[in-house]
């Protein structure tokens, strides 16, 4: 059984269609990454799975049941953090645990606080916490009731690398314990590293859905990373190259469909001393920009 199933789901706000005919299957026990530019319908989709918003059309199932019936089995971390400022941390965690019908939360809460380095903060009020700490408390609040499906909207935004790793490790631990994780992110590296499946939504429609390998295969082995001493490369100089992205030390070349990388290498060797040459899969970032970048948008709006 899939943890989440969306069938042809549409949601409009006034004249604006936020989500348009979306279908999606999230297998149990997977980490499913939602990517997409701002305002493309990520949060609306997540809110519909949470039953905070109701779809205008289509069907949503969570563990085979309507979302409302499954709400106690879902943990949710919203994009913008929501904590009662004047509550003590432990009281707050108890409140969220009880809301999901979870008993015996105390040991669990203490363990979570200790794991995330907040052991001494249980009896402090939320408004005494730093931003990073509050974010960790919010994370604990979303998983305190041992949910089977964890929905995280931008869980890493605004966290420093140390805290980010701590949360990431806990997310992976949840997965090992059998939970299904659904999270949205703007960080393509995180998505590449963590997700079993990646799903991209753009202007309310699904544009990518599958494993990273599937997606990269779909976009071909058409990227070269090169470093040529003492020269700047441009697409005009190199037949068969569609685009050159300059990263300073490295340049990334996107090839036209039937270009042979060996041919490009031969040309580069003629031009100068090649220090680095790699045939790479396109990065998720590159694929994202190809779909949602300014040039792509011009095409879609034309």
């Amino acid at each position: 059984m899939n943890a989440v199933e969306l069938t042809d789901v549409t949601k409009t706000f006034g004249s604006h269609t936020a989500v348009d005919g979306l279908s999606l299957h999230v297998p149990q026990g997977a980490i499913y990454g939602f990517i997409g530019p701002n305002g493309s319908g990520k949060t609306t989709s997540l809110r519909m799975i949470m039953n905070i918003l109701y779809p205008d059309r289509g069907d949503i199932r969570v563990f085979g049941r309507p979302p409302r019936a499954a709400s106690d089995r879902i943990g949710y971390l919203p994009e913008e953090r929501g904590l009662y400022k004047r509550m003590r941390v432990l009281d707050l965690l108890r409140f969220y645990a009880e809301l999901k019908g979870c008993r015996g939360f105390k040991a669990e809460a203490q363990a979570w606080l200790a794991k995330l380095g907040l052991a001494d903060w249980g009896s402090r009020k939320v408004d005494a916490l730093s931003k990073g700490m509050a974010q960790k408390v919010q994370f604990i609040a979303s998983v305190i009731a041992r949910p089977e499906l964890v929905i995280l909207d931008e869980p890493f935004s605004g966290l420093d690398p140390v805290n980010m790793e701590a949360i990431r490790d806990e997310v992976l631990e949840l997965k090992r314990n059998g939970a299904t994780i659904l999270f949205s992110t703007h960080d393509m590296d995180v998505a590449e590293q963590m997700c079993d499946f990646i799903f991209m939504i753009f202007q309310g429609r699904k544009v990518l859905d599958g494993t990273l390998d599937d997606i990269q295969r779909q976009y071909g082995h058409d990227t070269l990373r090169v470093q040529v001493e003492g020269m700047r490369l441009t697409a005009e100089d190199l037949p068969g190259v569609a685009k050159v992205t300059d990263f300073g030390h490295l340049q990334e070349l996107r090839l036209l469909d039937d270009t042979d990388p060996q041919g490009v290498l031969a040309r580069l060797v003629q031009r100068g001393r090649v220090r680095h040459f790699q045939v790479a899969k396109p990065s998720l970032r590159d694929i994202f920009v190809r779909i949602a970048g300014p040039q792509a948008q011009e095409v879609t709006h034309a």
Binding site: M50, I52, S71, Y76, G82, Y84, Y96, L99, A141
Partner: peptide
């Protein structure tokens, strides 16, 4: 108003109607 402004409502509505 606090629940709305602090976006707590969103978390709560994930659990209750």
């Amino acid at each position: 108003l606090e629940e709305k402004m602090q976006r707590i409502a969103e978390v709560l509505l994930g659990s209750v109607t």
